[in-house]
């Protein structure tokens, strides 16, 4: 005799519970939090380097730099003036999960944090399902990639609130259409907030900084 027993349990319920706890902890302190995702090489670290360097007098930024191997990104971010940068080496795992962030919490000075940023592992598939307790996901795409990426990785673009189109100084060298990428991204997620940046020339960064500061202010209010 066999019988069916209803479970109705989320596979990632354990992750989700920890993420909810993180979100509540950050929320109580009025800390705005972001989870940065992209393919490898889109410029997450470059954008964060500039952000740290140029906002360090205005915002206390705590940053967790995830990488599959090496602490290179964390070292770059520390060199850029990051005073609260924590490397998180996954040793092979293709995504970060809430437990990894949770474990780092005791090392983080939340009272001295306005903005909490997690730089995820470069991967547009696996990190999409893992809630890290962030307020928003920021997805980066660079003009050296295909402008159809939002259609190829809909899950990630759907779950993101912000898209940054990076390396726009190289636009003329690439067969990348700004119009098409916007169209493709908005087809997947009509609520996406979009920025266009170049971390080499600094173009578009002022708008990005202004938005960040506004979000931090709103979260504190």
């Amino acid at each position: 005799m066999s019988k069916t027993i209803e479970l109705k349990k989320k596979v990632l319920s354990e992750n989700d519970a920890l993420a909810a706890e993180l979100r509540a902890t950050l929320g109580e302190k009025g800390i705005f939090s972001l989870n940065f995702v992209s393919s490898p090489g889109s410029g997450k670290t470059s954008l964060l380097e500039r952000t740290l360097r140029e906002l360090k007098d205005e915002l206390n930024i705590t940053l967790v730099a995830g990488d599959v191997q090496t602490e290179n990104d964390a070292n770059r971010l520390i060199a850029a003036g990051g005073e609260q940068v924590k490397p998180l080496v996954t040793g092979g795992s293709c995504h970060l999960d809430a437990r990894m962030i949770h474990r780092l919490l005791p090392e983080i000075n939340l009272d001295n944090t306005d903005l909490f940023i997690v730089e995820n592992v470069g991967n547009l598939v696996c990190p999409s399902g893992y809630d890290l307790g962030e307020d928003m996901k920021v997805v980066l795409i660079s003009v050296t990639e295909g402008d159809d990426k939002p259609l190829k990785y809909p899950s990630m673009f759907r779950r993101s609130s912000v898209m940054v189109i990076n390396k726009i100084d190289m636009l003329e060298l690439c067969d990348f259409s700004m119009e098409r990428v916007r169209e493709n991204a908005l087809r997947i997620n009509g609520d996406l907030k979009i920025f266009e940046t170049s971390c080499r020339t600094g173009e578009g960064l002022e708008e990005w900084y202004a938005w960040l500061k506004e979000q931090v202010k709103q979260k504190k209010a």
Binding site: M1, S2, K3, T4, I5, E6, L7, K8, K9, K10, V11, L12, G129
Partner: peptide
Amino acid sequence: LDIAYIEVDD
């Protein structure tokens, strides 16, 4: 990404 049910055999 849910576990909807399990089926058990006595």
